[in-house]
Every structure is written in C-alpha cells, then in structure tokens.
Design a binder for these strands. Structure first.
Lengths: 135, 135
DNA sequence: TTCTATGCAAAGACTTTGCATGCTG
DNA sequence: CAGCATGCAAAGTCTTTGCATAGAA
C-alpha cells in the first residue's frame, strides 16, 4: 500500500492524515497482518519514526473506531489490530502468540440457534487455537 | 453443586481443598456461568467470605491450569472464567459485557482448511457478538 | 487565531509477585 | 517441623488520560 493509497484511505474514513497517523498506517496496512500496539511501536522505532506511545494507542483506537483496522481480542493480555477489516476467521498459535487468517472464506457455520431475545448479530468469529505439534 | 461435590472435584484435579479454594469454587461452580475475577471477588464479599484478591487470582489461575474451569479471552480488558469446561461456544453481548453459552451443541463448522504446518489443533471457538436491537 | 494532534508523564484497570505469617500433614 | 497456602502491598503490563505545546486550517 503506497503512501498515496494510505492518504486516500484515511480521507475516506474521515481521519485527518497527520505525519504520525501516516506512519502508523504505513506499518500496519503494509500487508495483511495482526499486530499489537507494542509490536507497532517497535516497528516504528526500527523505521526511525518518532511517534509517542500515547499517540500510537490513540491512533489505533481512532483507526478501529473509524473502521480502518479491526481490533481483535484473542489473548486477554493485549489487543491485536488487524489490517484486514472484512469478516474473516483466525488461527491462533498459542505457543508463539501469532495470529493468522484462516485462508479462503470457505468456512461455514451451521446450526446456530436463535439469538438471545432483543439482540441482533454483530459478528461471528471462529478462532482455531493451534499449538506446535508435540511429536 | 454441593460442598461434597466441590471437595470431590478439587481432589480429582489434584488441588488441595483449602477453605478459600472451596469458597471460590462454591461461587463459580454453583451453576454454568462466566465470571470475571472481579465479579467473583464481589460475590465472595456478599457471602461474607474473606478471601484476598491475590488468592482469588491465584486460585483462578490454578483452577484453569488444572482444568477445573476454563479461561476465556473474549474482551481484552479482562479474563472470564467459565464453569463449563467442555468445548462449547458463546454469545457475547457487547453492550452488557455478558457472556452466555450457545445452547445445545448443534453448531457445526465446515470448510476448515488444513492447519498451518507443524501445528495441531487445540480448540475451536465460535463467538457470536450480539448487541441490543436498535429498533 | 482557533481547533485538533502530539508527547510526556501520570493515572488507571487488571493481574502477578515477594515475602512474612499461618495452616496442614 | 517442613511445606504449601494466604494476605497484603508492591510491582508489572497494557492502555488511557490530563495538560501544555505544536501544528494545521
């Protein structure tokens, strides 16, 4: 995703494209991936971008509110931010803490009972936890 | 679940049944439910049990390691502990923060692609997020 | 100028840990 | 007595907030 695409995307979502936001977007949106705030801060450091911790957190919050990224709660010790925003499912490697998309969208779920009264569906997420083969 | 059942269950899982552990188990295992550490501490208070915060956290950690309860990561701001340990799925009410079991086990998932190389499956979890009907 | 963004440090929520005391076998 | 459990407070993580400064419209 080029700088121009990033500018475009921020604009589309009503986010003023400041230098720091562009840096954060460049790191996270560069390819389909799942990063924690901390990992993003590290990547910014190795790029020699100086964006404060607070701004990174604030920016990620803003991005997820505006639908630029998707916030994932897979491990309750930290949030992950997913550069892919459309509905999809994940593998979670419990040993490495890495998340990956379940490829294709061939997963389907059947036999879902009615939702609780007075509620409507917001999303359906499948998480398959995997571990290194013990063998 | 009676006091006797609780004693039995702790023993089965190799956990020494101390007074505090029995109190925590009595609260959490009383019925199928999903509670955060904080909610458990509150319930203990209203029962006039005096179990320290640290002990509640340590006990919940021990219980989940020993398979007496199941730790859930649904909301990255806190952990939930589920008194039902067999594999099942959840509704998460995003407005109230409440979790509920998806009744029956009629859910089935098809079209799951092969797992990443060198990994084996640990669990599959379906989480359906719901919100109050806006209507 | 006027409004919003940024950065730092402080504050906060949740959880874990260190260590002295207490209970158990 | 030896060993593990408990409780308190302190420390730790991750995240948010307050506020003064800096930048954009």
């Amino acid at each position: 995703m080029s700088r121009k695409d990033i500018l475009e995307k921020l604009k589309q979502h009503g986010v003023m494209p400041t230098a720091q936001r562009i840096e954060v977007a460049a790191v996270l949106l560069s390819r389909p991936q799942h990063l924690s705030a901390d990992q993003i801060i590290d990547k910014l450091k190795s790029r020699r971008s100086r964006v404060s911790k607070a701004t990174v957190y604030n920016t990620l919050k803003l991005f997820s509110e505006q639908g630029i990224v998707k916030e994932l709660s897979v491990d309750s010790s930290r949030k992950f931010y997913d550069s892919t925003t459309h509905s999809h499912h994940h593998f979670y490697h419990v040993d490495s803490g890495e998340l990956s998309d379940i490829p294709g969208s061939q997963i389907s779920i059947s036999g879902v009972p009615p939702l609780p009264n007075g509620t409507e569906q917001e999303s359906v997420e499948v998480l398959i936890r995997v571990r290194s083969k013990s063998k």
